[in-house]
Write a protein that binds this DNA or RNA. Structure first.
Lengths: 193, 193
DNA sequence: TAGATTCCTTGATTTTAATCAATGCCTTAG
DNA sequence: CTAAGGCATTGATTAAAATCAAGGAATCTA
């Protein structure tokens, strides 16, 4: 149940077996069925969730009532409403499962205690956030600087698994497009039929 | 010269005078004239820069030759091509001064040694990146979920100083719009004339 | 101070993506 | 097994932003 989590952790910051055991006591496993919520807008975000298995998405609803996906999280990724988690403010994002999923949850209390007592945890978190920041910066840069065909190619190149596993209309939402437009872009990019 | 930097640091992580002195030995001040480069695309990003005074921007050039601004940095902000800085890969962003500026530079070597020897530096960096990540997430969410008028209002509400100090065509670039479109949006938002 | 440059705005036109509408294909639930 | 819903595609039309073009401050500078 914790394989991927500790694999990812050890890749970034190697742990002794004792450290690993200690950290494990702070973690809570959780299963989520497809379409179940992990977090709803307005609620308090109580966890950082590491995805051991399955797929989640985080999104907001725009004024037209359309779901706008801000993030996907497949195996090995972490997902949360970090602002809400850290500040205790109500969440702005909703997070739910695209597929049945197995998660590892870190509560606020666990997070704070781990930061205080396990220096390597702070390093892990720092590296994790740094990676997320760089990924986000890239995504933003591609949005403001590339034509949408290039953005789609980029997405395929960077996250082939997402494009394969996730329905196209969600990809469209993630790219800020309508499904119709994405379909036409695909027609052009993926070998004009 | 180091006032703002240590003020910002102490707000996040209070330092003893000795710690502060130690950290100071790792920092390099640098002045930049308007239009001067701090970093050019393709070069190695050797520093994280903290802005004590003035204003910088980071950008890429798109295939039409247009500058696409990815970030502004005014007093109290930090700017860098983090990916290049951390990995040693060539920079994808160019950074230059919008106004004459005074910077505090942290070199790669300094960064690494500070991480090893000053635990509070790691905490500072973690909090700094976390803040940057959350800000970026918000910006991205507003891009994919809000109409551009709302995005502009948001920008004014969040960074009034930027909108005041920076030429409008740079704001347009930052928002991924043409200056003409932004001008028309402004006409609508800022009291239709 | 004259000239140049940068910057913002406005108008007309073109291009691009959104919207509206319909079809066909799967998958799934009863 | 059949109906229903979800999903992707395609076409026609509308709406929005980009582009092209020009003009008028304001600022810098030689």
């Amino acid at each position: 149940m914790y394989e991927l989590f500790f694999q990812s952790f050890n890749e970034k910051v190697p742990l002794s077996p004792e450290e690993q055991e200690k950290i494990k006591t702070y973690l809570t496993p959780k299963k989520l069925r497809k379409k179940q919520y992990l977090l709803q807008e307005g609620d308090l975000c109580k966890y950082i969730a590491f995805v051991e298995k399955g797929a989640l998405k985080s999104y907001v609803i725009d004024e037209a009532g359309t779901e706008r996906i801000t993030q996907f999280a497949l195996e090995g990724w972490t997902i949360s409403d970090l602002y809400s988690f850290l500040t205790g403010e109500p969440a702005t994002y909703t997070i739910d499962a695209i597929e049945d999923a197995e998660l590892i949850l870190i509560s606020k209390a666990a997070h704070e205690e781990l930061l205080q007592t396990v220096p390597k945890y702070e390093t892990y978190i720092r590296l994790q956030i740094t990676g997320a920041y760089i990924a986000l910066q890239r995504r933003l840069t591609s949005i403001i600087s590339l034509p949408i065909e290039e953005r789609y190619k980029n997405l395929i190149a960077t996250y082939p698994t997402i494009v394969q596993r996730v329905p196209q209309h969600m990809i469209a939402s993630y790219m800020g497009l309508t499904p119709e437009t994405l379909s036409r872009v695909r027609g052009r990019v993926t070998g004009r039929k």
